[in-house]
């Protein structure tokens, strides 16, 4: 895969975010009680926001994301990757899924950036990777403060 233009790269990213929205929508369908739903809806809204943001960027033709990657708390890599999608998902399960998802996205962008030959595109992917790292960091911190309080 090699993306040579700005629009191409962003299309891919928008597509991924849309998939993420779909991911939460799928989970929502599984959810059995109110607490789950409220969390999933919140996360889905977040991803929808990302789609909008990327779409705006694409329209303006200029990437406006920070290049600074967030600190890696090294949680994502350790967490068990097995699929959590069940009807009785706990907050932990949902967060783990979210972290994993953001991590996968970040990895993908990082790979793409490494593979990109056009400097402009390379930068887009780097920026996108950084953006995803910030998302991941957000979930990681949530995990640290809410789930793994005692560890």
């Amino acid at each position: 895969m090699d993306f040579s233009t700005f629009d191409e790269a962003l299309d891919l990213a928008i597509g991924r975010e849309a998939a993420a929205v779909q991911f939460y929508t799928d989970l929502l369908a599984l959810a059995s009680f109110a607490a789950q739903k409220s969390v999933l809806e919140e996360f889905r809204a977040m991803e929808t926001g990302h789609v909008t943001m990327l779409t705006n960027i694409r329209m303006r033709g200029r990437i406006e994301l920070s290049a600074t990657a967030a600190v890696d708390l090294a949680l994502a890599r350790r967490l068990d990757a097995e699929d959590k999608a069940t009807a009785v998902m706990s907050f932990q399960d949902i967060l783990v899924s979210a972290i994993k998802k953001e991590e996968r996205a970040g990895d993908l962008y990082a790979d793409l950036a490494a593979a990109a030959s056009v400097p402009e595109v390379k930068e887009i992917f780097q920026r996108l990777a950084a953006e995803e790292s910030r998302h991941r960091r957000y979930f990681e911190e949530l995990y640290e403060s809410e789930i793994s309080r005692d560890n």
Binding site: S32, F33, A34, A35, K37, S38, V39, E42, V88, S90, F91, Q92, L142, E146, I147, S148, R149, D150, N151
Partner: peptide
């Protein structure tokens, strides 16, 4: 494993119309 505990909120249904946020 004693890394933390979470709530069990499965008894609150959507019909209860109680506002929840992040469990």
């Amino acid at each position: 494993a004693a890394i933390g505990q979470g709530p069990d909120l499965s008894f609150i249904g959507e019909a209860d119309r109680l506002e929840l946020r992040r469990f």
